[in-house]
Design a protein around this nucleic acid. Structure first.
Lengths: 377, 377
DNA sequence: ACTCGCCTTGAATCAGTCG
DNA sequence: ACGACTGATTCAAGGCGAG
């Protein structure tokens, strides 16, 4: 079943600003098998894919709690595969389609447990995806191991991969750092499992056995997409990806085979509100700030020709020329070159290395640059 | 090269008490390629195998630290494979031998990173091993991501697998629970990397690029072997497995190809003493308070993006962004930074400084943090 | 003996633009 | 495709010397 006609393949290439494709079923759910549904989409049309495929759990009999209750395990039909080979074939099929519809700089996320994640990771590599990180979702409240026969299975694994080795993928480094008390975000994330009011229920029973917490998708989408990006989830379930995408102002496409899940997902997302602009304002990545040549500071008089630059410990003194070149002893060059030469280092960020005396205080060139940028409005 | 003649295959079966095999090179290092060396050992002769195979890192050029230093990468020849297929072939070969020499109730441990662990896990399943857990070693002090291009790679993955699905493997549940303050041991272990006095050095430089911490092997051997059991390590390196095995009264066999590693491993293990009975029983760690980033409260919805923070006397009002950064007037940053900026102070503990309105009452962020920690259980 | 600050280091698939 | 140039980037531990 084709959901929409294939449209012309968009221009590829690093800088091509791809217009939203005509007819792309944005912000809606395709009720179909995920491979068929993806096959109906054009090449290179989505910025990110988040996939939570069947885990291929190999549960023997039923599992009973110590006090006698039955554990409500995941025994749905869609989670059954006869052999590893069958699972691999399925994995390869959906990942191939996923790779095709991904933009050149798009990324894929896959979540799984030890039952399936090794097969997913290997297949991914075989298809040419380039793994960027594996992420451990460490559950703060996992189910205990009732029998006492193994370690408590307290985590799941996510793989983050770009379409190819030379992709220029999106990673909002500053945003992640801000979200983690100004320390780099690590590859292990402590988050609670989905429970309480967040758990989608129909007539009092949980609607889906493996609903993921919104906090997990929140971090994934915030880290690796920009506002307006198109996020596709081929195993949509109760639509956590769609709900969080809407909340964060991303566009989304869901694919889900089971009618009952489609229905609850629609309701859920319809009742989700987008965060308002001011709350959404994420930290500006320094990388996206306008580039300021050092000469601009000299031209505008923030730094006078003839001014003396020094490092934070006043070990070297360099002089600024009228053309914004810098000289130290018999050497002359850019703030970066002379900074590197002074230290005997292969490279140097002159903006953070050099300072200028203002009264008794040393002011870093980078601070002056920030002032300059701020003055631009 | 055959280290010893094959001896008669011992009786298999669940309860067969296999006598220590005549001629098994116990508590010694075989200096040879691991596949050849394992091939020289009889069927079903070891209780556990701990394997730390080459990771197949595919490094580009040199990597420099922000301050200019060079990262001492793992660029040894033994870590180079041309293709994934070549790596798979190698993996399959050593795992096949490993499975043959493993006793029916024996288990295999493999450690790796995202570069190789998915391939190892898939191969393991293909060969009939039965995965019992995947374990995440969360490094308390990992190397940062210097370029800010990805998440800090802060963990490695271990796979624990039995020889087959119906193996009656060893798992010292009580010991693990005791080691974890009387809570079930989870699948994520926080342990520091190997450094300081533990790091084996020859003439001042590290002897091996990838030496594992003894604490890791300690937990593995304590959990999954009994005293007197035979532990084999086919990628022995500096002999961490042997040293910890000796300390814990387990027997060991090491296989290592490189003469220089064999030498340092011998010296190291010779100078290791076995723990006495009483010392082996008194290993209890204290439970420490988890560190909670402010972003966790936002992700989990305890604090909504857009919420207003104020101090105890309501002098300042700051707004929470979707990325958990906080903005006040034209400034934006962490709760600590903005708290400091508001007061004109050099620093500030944002947790105690900021409050949030709940009805008419002001609730301190630190109280919310305590609630969050309590909820983690 | 103790603290404080500085330096070193750890399995790393670690940049983007212009000519 | 390739080279030159510009520019962006770090956390937790341990060791050691100064005070």
């Amino acid at each position: 079943m084709s959901v929409l006609q294939r449209v012309a393949v968009p221009k590829k290439g690093m800088k091509a600003k791809v217009e939203p494709l005509r007819g792309l079923p944005l912000n809606s759910i395709i009720e179909d098998d995920c491979i068929a549904a993806m096959a109906s989409l054009p090449d290179a049309c989505v910025d990110m894919i988040f996939a939570d495929p069947p885990y291929n759990l190999q549960l023997g009999g039923e599992l009973f709690r110590p006090e006698g209750g039955r554990v409500d395990a995941c025994d749905d039909d869609w989670d059954k595969f006869d052999t590893f080979a069958a699972y691999d074939e399925f994995t390869k099929a959906w990942m191939k389609e996923a790779r095709r519809i991904l933009k050149p700089n798009g990324t894929l996320w896959v979540i799984g447990s030890y039952h399936n994640i090794f097969r997913c990771g290997a297949t991914l590599q075989d298809l040419g995806f380039w793994i960027l990180n594996d992420i451990v979702w460490r559950k703060s409240n996992p189910m205990p191991n009732f029998r006492g026969t193994r370690f408590t299975n307290a985590h799941e694994t996510l793989i983050w991969a770009s379409k190819s080795e030379d992709s220029r993928y999106t990673f909002n480094y500053r945003t992640m750092k801000a979200l983690n008390d100004d320390l780099q975000m690590r590859s292990d994330w402590v988050l609670p499992i989905c429970s309480g009011g967040e758990r989608v229920k129909t007539e009092g029973v949980k609607a889906h056995p493996t609903q993921k917490p919104e906090s997990l998708l929140y971090r994934v989408l915030l880290a690796c997409t920009n506002k307006g990006d198109v996020v596709l989830d081929p195993f949509f379930g109760t639509g956590t990806t769609g709900a969080v995408a809407r909340r964060l102002g991303r566009q989304w496409i869901g694919i889900e085979r089971e009618k009952k899940y489609v229905k609850v997902a629609r309701q859920r997302i319809d009742s989700t509100l987008e965060l308002d602009e001011s709350a959404m304002k994420t930290m500006v990545s320094k990388r996206q700030q306008p580039k300021v040549p050092f000469g601009a500071l000299v031209e505008t008089g923030m730094i006078e020709p003839g001014a003396v630059l020094t490092d934070s410990k006043r070990r070297w003194r360099a002089k600024v020329g009228a053309d914004a070149s810098v000289s130290l002893a018999d050497k002359q060059g850019s703030i970066h070159q002379i900074g590197a030469a002074a230290q005997g280092a292969p490279s140097c960020n002159g903006w953070t290395f050099w300072h200028i005396e203002q009264g008794e205080r040393l002011v870093c060139l980078d601070d002056l640059r920030q002032k300059y940028i701020a003055a631009l409005g």
